[in-house]
Nucleic acid binder design. Sequence first.
DNA 1: CGTTACGTTGATGATATTCAAGGACTGTGG
DNA 2: CCACAGTCCTTGAATATCATCAACGTAACG
Lengths: 235, 235
Amino acid sequence: MSTIFIPKHIHPTYSNTVFNDCLLFHDMTPHELDRLENYAEQSKCEEGEYLFRQDTPADFVYNVISGSVAIERIFTNGRRQIIGFLFPGDFIGLTHSPNYDCAVRCLTKVEFYKFSRKRLNTLSEEVGHLKQNMEQIKSAIFSRVMEQLYVLGQKKALERLCFLFMQLLERLPGARADRVELYMSRQDMADYLGLTIETVSRCLAKLKSDGLVAFPKLNHLQILNLPAVSELAEC
Amino acid sequence: MSTIFIPKHIHPTYSNTVFNDCLLFHDMTPHELDRLENYAEQSKCEEGEYLFRQDTPADFVYNVISGSVAIERIFTNGRRQIIGFLFPGDFIGLTHSPNYDCAVRCLTKVEFYKFSRKRLNTLSEEVGHLKQNMEQIKSAIFSRVMEQLYVLGQKKALERLCFLFMQLLERLPGARADRVELYMSRQDMADYLGLTIETVSRCLAKLKSDGLVAFPKLNHLQILNLPAVSELAEC
DNA sequence: CGTTACGTTGATGATATTCAAGGACTGTGG
DNA sequence: CCACAGTCCTTGAATATCATCAACGTAACG
């Protein structure tokens, strides 16, 4: 049954081919999906655990079914840079190098499909659609990283936070302006945006006091003034 | 004659497979190189000209023979982020998207090979080595961008400049600690490192007064205290 | 010799970091 | 149910860092 391979999280309501990576399955015939299915193994991981660590063999490719993860890089001096957050539908580990160059930490309990990278590559040689789609996903990832480069290089703390909010709103399946779940800690936001945790906290307070956002709960964001937040986030 | 395809700039003295992208030609047989040769066209471009602009059709892949270029992205607000600098041996335009997502400006007069991307892709389907090499180059590029992310996110102005210096020293063919040619303007450095031109200028003055570097000419850098500069640049 | 583009330097203010203290939430054991 | 510890978050004050605005040098070129 190839339908197993169109998981709920890529249902049209969620499917945003620009921001989520579900398009691995795009345009594939039922037969092709069947073959892909044989390569997958479903599994899960608890909050705080690592799917994999930096510099370990890059043997698998993951597709998030539910939950959120952070992609992080640790440097020799011990400082950490978070490269991005991934959500249901996103792919992880589509690297070409023999080892992962990032670690992947679960922000929540995470369910995922796990593919042998070797076999996926073999299959992609035979199934044109798959290959195309993998390339496009890599393209999208690269494009996101370049956007982040700009944000870190040019934007102020308040704007960076708004950028994160807009990104979450666009990429989190089921997120709406009045309900965006922040699965990451303040420290995670700081490490993603190149700020300190105190600056993040202060900026959240400022955005709140200016009436742009609200926090009914600590990690439950409401965007009250979407045009303003979007304006600040603008690239 | 396939030897045309082992241009001078990838002669062993220069060839650094980690930092330069010459490895497109790695492990290829003379016959394969012959075929590649048929796909190439040699050309040049003057200082200040653009090889191509952002959002134009990505029809070609370029390989720099001599000179330096800057990869830049312009955003809606008019601000510019330089993604990187490329030098002899480096490849440009290895994107998968239909349009270039960056512009490429020549910092000097630039000689290059120009390949039809379509034909290069076709060839890479048949020539395993070529395909492998292209993937590895993309990997290296991605890895550089992630390093830059870290620099912009976590490092101070002085450290960013040292990072640039070390990068130039490693990637510029023929560069030595006592002779690194800075082909870019102060503004280019600023846009690369996420700083203003004034901050760049002040930091250069500080590094100079601290005896870490010298500038016999405005764009001719000497690294006097390599361990110290390297230490500051450290990731 | 003047113009122009690019680079430097100074004074000032904005922005973010650091260090330190105090709250808020969670889970555990009494 | 409460007390307690531990973790995460917030807030304040002092400081460091960088950006901005403005003036001044300098090198290249007609």
